[in-house]
Design a protein around this nucleic acid. Sequence first.
RNA 1: GGUCUCGUGGCCGAGUGGUUAGGUACCGGUCUGCAAAACCGUUGACUCCAGUUCGAAUCUGGACGAGACCUCCA
Length: 496
Amino acid sequence: MKNTDNKGKVFLFNTLSKRKELFKPITPDHVGLYVCGPTVYGEPHLGHARPAVTFDVVFRYLTHIGYKVRYVRNITDVGHLEHDADEGEDKIAKKARLEQLEPMEVAQYYMDSYHKAMDALNVKGPSIEPRASGHIIEQIEMVQKILDAGYAYVSEGSVYFDVEKFDKDFGYGKLSGRVLAELIANTRELDGQSEKRNPADFALWKKAAPEHIMRWNSPWSVGFPGWHIECTAMSTKYLGEQFDIHGGGMDLLFPHHESEVCQSTVANGKSSVRYWMHNNMITIEGQKMGKSLGNFITLNEFFTGSHPKLEKAYSPMTIRYFVLQASYRGTVDFSNAALQSAEKGLEKLYAAERHLDSLKAGATSTENIEALQERCYEAMNDDFNTPKVIAELFDAVRIINAVKDGHATLTAEDIELLKTTFRTFFFDILGIKPELAQGDTREHDALDKAMQLVLEMRKTAKAEKNWALSDKIRDDLNAAGIVVKDTKDGAEWSLA
RNA sequence: GGUCUCGUGGCCGAGUGGUUAGGUACCGGUCUGCAAAACCGUUGACUCCAGUUCGAAUCUGGACGAGACCUCCA
């Protein structure tokens, strides 16, 4: 099966219809993909890893099967309130004052931090990574468009979207299933609501309070853009008035994405997104991750094991693999037990991959590699079913070991196909990083030669039944991070 | 209370109306000086209650339970 044979066979779960739909891009062979990126006001954590990895795989797979994908993932670096803050204070501005830094310095710092963590997770950079602060003009223009269309109003220097009017003309809540009347009924009376005609209205532009540092000029006031407008403005700019896939976390479904639907419908004359995809949340030992719960774990803490909840450090690839072992639409619970079992499974896959190059061809094949490859593609085509793909890879592991041990045979052709299939899905599509980065091979070759020498000496010791020496060699190497295993064909080594 | 996701073996997790998911753990075996790995095999599940059906973990309804979101705002 050729990779491009799968173009036109991908089904994805569309939040809009709540079912799997055949994916058809607007422009043949091209895909526009927009994903809500991080707000850069704090250290990257697990909540950032999930959508990043999920849509990284979407990006990788669609690219692999031959689509030209423009992947846009934004950086939110303006205009967001501190959680639980009484006053409407900008998250970034508040932190900046606390730390005596420029707001953009804070944003830059955490953006770099985010990028480093994403690199560690082997998450590919998007095609375009626009920053909200760099698109203030586009946002103002879009707010003006919405005002001109008559679906927004100015109040005390702020601009609000008229949800009631929108509901009457287009129907509100198509994406999230919210009913406007119920929303209003559930609204509590709070201060600062008087500017709005309707509690369900949302801000397109906010007038900045005097102490608010992040501020820009606009026709209405010195202020900052409302949260939802940046995604609409930037997705329109880079992907057009209508584009294929919009992704993000399920927590963004309402009100963020619902508001985006409102904005683009009015500003562009149509709802811009064809397929909405939402990844589910992550939990820590069954609980929501939150600062107040004491289970808020940053990615760096995971990589180094420096959090009381963690029994040990977990490598970035363990975390990536763990995330992909569950389907993106279900919650993922992080527990030490689950993480450690994932770690072992991943190690088994790595080990099998190492053995791939030493497989010896036979005259016939006792295993059907083509069918295996096909099942991998089918799994990916079925709403990116990465757990299924991983299960298939373990079937490949079984085959690799069987051939290695002589319980099964493969033709040279099938071995090639097995290699390609395994490496394509393991490395290219699931995005697991090869153990050896390119460029490390010289060092590795040198180490391998040295190791062959050591193992030869150990073999001699074993032949002389000098167990003390052979065990000492093994134990000392182990302590140095090198694992030695005796197999039928002699000893082999790997880095722990 | 509303909207939405979900409830599978010790743990993690796929899944189709009737046929082994897979990983990990456990147990037995092969191999081994020992260890590890690998291989073979066994055990083990579908929250509960109704209904549809020849047959449901898979469809429908209800109950119970979990999570996310539900003024502004991430």
